[in-house]
Amino acid sequence: MALALAEANPIESIALDVEGVSHRYDVDGKDLQVLDNVSLTIAPGEFVALLGPSGCGKSTLLRLAAGLETATVGKVLEDGRPITAPNPDRILVFQDATLFPWRTVRDNIAIGLEARRLLDTKGYRIDEVLKLVKLEGFADFYPHQLSGGMAQRAALARALVNDPKLLLLDEPFGKLDSLTRLRMQNELLDLWKSAGFTALLVTHDVEEALLLADRVIVLSDRPASIVAEIRVDRPHPRRRDDATLVALRSQLLEKLGISHDV
């Protein structure tokens, strides 16, 4: 079923299935459970937001989907195949831009192609994504010369140059100032629409989730389990004072345990 969908989809994207995943860490000899029986299905090309309190295990879910770790219990599948190792089809964008400080913006973006020895055939994509994230003029800058927003855009470009089918975003705008964040949210939306990848966004910002996602999944405090799932059937671009969104917002806040109007 998932495979058929992927084939039917003209733009390349993949379905992500999380089946009964529980995950534990061993922290200084203490057993720490971060995920508790989480199951969810994300259709190809869908934009899903994971909402939950800080440190609840949202990021762990992304690390499992990226293939950086393997779940203690349960399965994480891409188009029905288990995820066992990292693959540039599924790229994780972190809260910090984590650009390599010894490489220029261009060379940072080139890392994925360089690592897979595709620089000769796909090198032209670098200039394309530079334009896409509006960093054409900064290709030869070093990361320390960039502002926070520019660095995060460069990190996004570094992911996009590999034409990911699944983009995993771990609070990518969490450290940006509020104006830059608004701009970046719109840019991300445009990129998602034009590139057509499946997007899984982890955030603790209710408004961000509502503005961007097709579906918002609320996770509980650690160990995280799914508390609620809300579909946001509103066309883009969305206005934050849209009556439906305002209603959904208080609904989500309630699920997160904040009952008053904040």
Partner: peptide
């Protein structure tokens, strides 16, 4: 920084790349 390795690995880097380029 461990996250440099994570970034490189998700971008398709092998061990050789991790040692020599990171």
């Amino acid at each position: 920084n461990r996250s440099f390795y994570d970034v490189a690995r998700t971008l398709g880097a092998d061990n050789r790349f991790l040692i020599f380029k990171v």
